Amino acid sequence: MLHAMVGNTGTNWKLRHVSWRRVLSQQDWGSLISTITVLIVFAITDAALGGPRARPFQVTDSTISYPYGYSLVPYWSVIVASIAALLLTIVAAELWLRRSQHTDLTNALAATLHFLIDGLSAFGVTGMVTQITKMAVGRLRPDFLDRCKPVVPSPLIVSYGLPASANPACTEPESVELTDGHYSFPSGHTSTAFAFSVWTVGYAVWAFSLRAPRLSAAAVRQMSVGQRLAREAMTAAGFLWIVSLLVYAWFVGVSRITDFKHHASDVVGGALLGTLFGLAFVVRSIARLGSVVDVPIDLHPGTGSPQSESELLGHNGGGRDTGRVHASSMVPV
């Protein structure tokens, strides 16, 4: 199907002309409903489990005898920092770097909301799967004995193959901290950090590098020295941003080991879980963008069209179209 793509004129990009009804009505509600359905099923499963699985332990187990202390990276800070990075990346791409690919501000905001909802959906599903897995496994944290302070049998006898009912009693009263001591696998901090980071990195790679239109090598050679330096600086900044997101997720995972909150395998499991859901959701959101806004196809990948190269080089009114109508092949991705 052929659509006429109107250039982003100043009027179309005034906030007062935004149709918020269109922003909402254009959303991919089918995908959102499916995500909500999955979350409801997981919430019911979480409630049905009721608590962590009881696991047998020995007071002589050195792997769970580390000191109980504070967390270097609180969970709330992981969520706040991750959402901020996700939102900043989406806004930078949809409302600035790829502004020329939207017909007006309404469509740009619709795309922004589409990606934001999907990123938050990845977080929600990852969090629920992490919590259910924690309860089903019931693995003890490295600092569990310090939380529990169990009664030491006298005389001390090491026995094997005993059920959880034979565990020595904890001298510490029942509390949130004691229950949390059974939630070691997988690491929730790590799964959250990786879900957000991998989703954001996947989106950034697509939005900054793979999304049409792109400049051809010939167009790059035609740039002035100043334009070339600015372009390379932006490329380097984008790469550093991507690396920083991955390093942050790695730092969060490592901190859970050094804080004695998780075993190394817990962090690996959380990283794998977050990576899988982050990738799954970002691929879905990119593939479904065509159901939210019109998406142009790059008919000559790697070469760029004269129109797009002219815009990206700063011609034709500073990179924005002056309101002319172009016939473009527009189909959903």
Rank of each mutant, 00 (worst) to 15 (best):
A92L: 13
K261A: 10
A233F: 12
G318C: 14
T192D: 03
I286F: 12
A110E: 02
S100A: 14
A122V: 02
A193E: 01
D143W: 02
H102P: 12
I257D: 00
T190E: 00
D266L: 08
N8L: 13
F251V: 05
S159K: 14
V152Q: 06
W29V: 07
D28I: 02
V267C: 08
W20G: 06
V18M: 12
P67S: 13
R231T: 09
A230F: 08
P52H: 05
I132H: 00
T192G: 09
E174M: 11
A230L: 14
A92E: 02
V247L: 14
A47V: 11
A136K: 10
D294S: 12
S191R: 02
L276I: 15
Y68P: 00
A230H: 06
V268A: 12
V267D: 01
G181L: 03
L24H: 04
V198H: 01
R55N: 14
A110L: 13
S216H: 08
R228A: 15
R324N: 14
T275W: 06
H300W: 11
V293A: 09
T179R: 15
A110S: 15
I36A: 15
P56Q: 10
S19N: 14
P153Q: 08
R55S: 05
H263I: 11
A327L: 15
L140K: 09
G202Y: 04
L279F: 08
L86F: 06
H189D: 03
N8H: 12
V6T: 08
Y70W: 09
S82E: 03
I90P: 07
V325S: 13
D61M: 08
L2S: 06
V283L: 14
V292G: 03
V295Q: 09
L24G: 13
T63S: 15
A110P: 13
V158Y: 09
F42Y: 12
R16M: 05
G202Q: 07
S77N: 07
W199A: 07
L276R: 00
P173K: 05
V282G: 00
G69A: 11
T171D: 01
V201M: 05
S329K: 07
M5N: 01
T275K: 04
M234Q: 10
R211Y: 10
S34C: 13
L279T: 11
D294E: 11
I90Q: 04
L272V: 15
L86K: 00
A219Q: 10
G274Y: 00
L289W: 01
F208Q: 08
G127W: 13
L210W: 10
L72P: 02
F277W: 06
G238I: 06
S308M: 06
A287W: 11
V293W: 05
R16K: 14
E232T: 08
S197M: 02
G69R: 13
V293Y: 04
L178A: 04
L210C: 05
D259F: 07
S329I: 15
Y68M: 09
G318N: 06
V176T: 10
V220T: 13
W29I: 04
A47D: 01
